[in-house]
């Protein structure tokens, strides 16, 4: 019985000790890290289509300022495309959560061999093709695809889906001509815009 009493005493001490140790290590730091700076995040995808031979440029923009947050993205088209025209498009990716906003397009150009943009349409909208300019190719002479060409004919409606693939298999069948089917890789961005040709 005596040992039991001693033991209980000991246990009490041990518990107090444990509590003291734990509680004292509790109040270690009250300084908080700043919120994580999501530098890599893409918040904004913009394509500006400028008609050859003059006319109104069309801006298609997809903006999602809270990333994986609950708010829905804002998708805008500045106007309608005109019939029987050729438009040259330039695509940019931005992170507008940082201040100042970061242009991620430059990183994509730098790592051109690991990136490719694909353009897919639905409805009666004509196909978008790659600009053949050297600036649209990577170090291996394969398309990166930031520059695109849209040639309109008749009136049409539908959507344009722009997909940025990271580490695609650029040498797979038809990938170099802009067909996403065999591209594999992982998707860094995939956004759709409504298109009207009037």
């Amino acid at each position: 019985m005596k040992t039991m009493q001693k033991l209980n005493k000991f246990k009490t001490y041990a518990l107090i000790m444990a509590t003291v140790v734990t509680l004292s290590s509790c109040s270690n730091d009250d300084t908080n890290d700043a919120p994580v700076n999501e530098e890599e995040l893409i918040t904004t995808v913009t394509v500006i289509y400028t008609p050859v031979g003059g006319g109104t440029a069309i801006t298609l923009q997809y903006k999602d300022l809270d990333g994986e947050g609950a708010n829905a993205p804002v998708i805008t088209a500045s106007g309608n495309f005109e019939k029987n025209k050729t438009y040259n498009g330039v695509l940019t990716f931005k992170n507008e959560l940082t201040d100042p906003a970061e242009d991620i397009t430059l990183e994509i150009i730098e790592e051109g061999v690991d990136h490719q943009v694909f353009y897919q349409t639905t409805g009666t909208v004509n196909a978008f093709t790659y600009d053949t300019a050297a600036s649209n190719l990577d170090a291996n002479g394969l398309p990166v695809g930031l520059q695109s060409v849209f040639t309109t004919t008749n009136a049409a409606t539908g959507t344009l889906t722009v997909t940025l693939r990271h580490q695609p298999n650029k040498t797979a069948s038809n990938v170099a001509s802009g067909d996403i089917t065999n591209a594999a890789g992982s998707t860094d961005a995939e956004v759709s815009f409504p298109i009207s040709v009037l």
């Binding site: 918040t43 995808v45 997809y62 990333g67 994986e68 609950a70 829905a72 998707t187 961005a189 995939e190």
Partner: peptide
């Protein structure tokens, strides 16, 4: 449900 992000 579903949520839309920049990746779809």
């Amino acid at each position: 449900g579903f949520e839309t992000t920049i990746r779809g």
